[in-house]
């Protein structure tokens, strides 16, 4: 009885009792969710266009952030470093398309999935070799990212919002809007959607798959860079950040592997759910439940919708 009370009544009483704490927790979950959503966005872009479940997205994020900071440490001005990093991500996209995707075209999904593990290992080794394995701090000032925080007064107390988090949410919003426009309005965007729909049909109307893949991987690389900047600013830029990318996987399956809005909604559900769970129910279980709660939430959703919230309906034929 006490246990039931501790699970079903006490946390809610706590929420109502101190709305400022609740609002703060939700805000933190929201920001975390936005950043998860950004990583998931990179996954979705690549999965839609090439059917590759890109495990390397997490390491691409770390690699991009590391390149940016590493170049800056070597004395390159921040904006030049930013452009150079984008150039590096482009080179990476071309390299991956030429050396990995093209020879492996038409192979089963799991083989391509495995190949992205190869990319992951390669990038870990390369990143450490060139920039060293020590954690670095993100160059927030040089990139004109705001610091400090603002206090928001709400009935029952106040909520502290980090300016950096607001900037992250804003950038995420702009990026998603930009991508949506790019997909809907431009010629390349149309080609991308055609490829996502049906590879062979796209080929037959004269769309170059190889070119599209480079564009998609490059876009995912830029998204990875943006994500890396904000995650790097919240903690340090190190290979440990890769673990964050694993958190994007439940986001991805919750939203559906092929849906951009799904990635956003999934990110927010996971982000907020995780923080609320950790804060209100975590102490019951001894804390640290953040590591698996996201997966359990995603699993619960999947049991009812096996293709994710926004995924395409799975139609199976013999």
């Amino acid at each position: 009885m006490d246990l039931l009370r501790a699970i079903f009544i006490d946390p809610f009483a706590q929420m109502i009792g101190s709305p400022d704490l609740l609002a703060q927790t939700i805000w933190e979950g929201f920001v975390g969710g936005v950043l998860y959503a950004l990583i998931a966005l990179g996954f979705v872009l690549i999965f839609k266009a090439s059917g590759v479940f890109n495990f390397a997205q997490g390491i691409m994020m770390v690699f991009a952030a590391l390149t940016l900071v590493g170049l800056h440490e070597k004395g390159v001005p921040a904006w030049v470093a930013l452009i150079l990093t984008i150039a590096v991500m482009y080179a990476l996209a071309v390299g991956i398309e030429r050396l990995v995707l093209r020879p492996l075209v038409n192979q089963p999904d799991i083989i391509l999935f495995m190949a992205t593990f190869g990319i992951t290992y390669f990038l870990i080794g390369l990143g450490e070799l060139v920039f060293g394995g020590n954690p670095k701090s993100m160059i927030t000032k040089e990139l004109f990212l705001p610091g400090g925080s603002i206090d928001l007064h709400i009935p029952g107390g106040r909520v502290q919002l980090q300016k950096l988090d607001i900037a992250a949410a804003a950038v995420a919003l702009i990026m998603v809007a930009g991508l949506a426009l790019f997909f809907q309005k431009t010629r390349i965007g149309r080609a991308l959607r055609a490829v996502a729909d049906d590879h062979q049909a796209a080929l037959s109307v004269g769309i170059s798959l190889n070119q599209i893949w480079v564009i998609v991987w490059f876009t995912a690389g830029v998204v990875a860079l943006a994500t890396g900047i904000f995650w790097g600013a919240r903690s340090d830029v190190s290979f440990a950040l890769q673990v964050v990318a694993l958190k994007a996987l439940p986001v991805l399956i919750l939203g559906g592997l092929t849906s951009v809005p799904g990635a956003i909604v999934g990110g927010l559900i996971i982000g907020i759910g995780e923080k609320l769970g950790e804060f209100y129910w975590g102490p019951l279980l001894g804390g640290g439940i953040e590591s698996w709660l996201a997966y359990i939430i995603a699993l619960a959703f999947l049991l009812f919708r096996p293709q994710g919230l926004f995924g395409e309906k799975i139609i199976e034929r013999i």
Binding site: D109, F113, I253, S291, W292, Y295, L299, L303, P306, I314
Partner: peptide, 28 residues
């Protein structure tokens, strides 16, 4: 048990739930 409804990469991520949950149990 979920494997009956969930397939492919979705199942792979579902098994990650087992991985992280059990790992947490071992530590806690």
């Amino acid at each position: 048990l979920p494997s009956l409804r969930i397939k492919g990469f979705y199942l792979a991520v579902a098994t990650l739930a087992a991985q992280f949950f059990l790992e947490w149990c071992f530590a806690r």
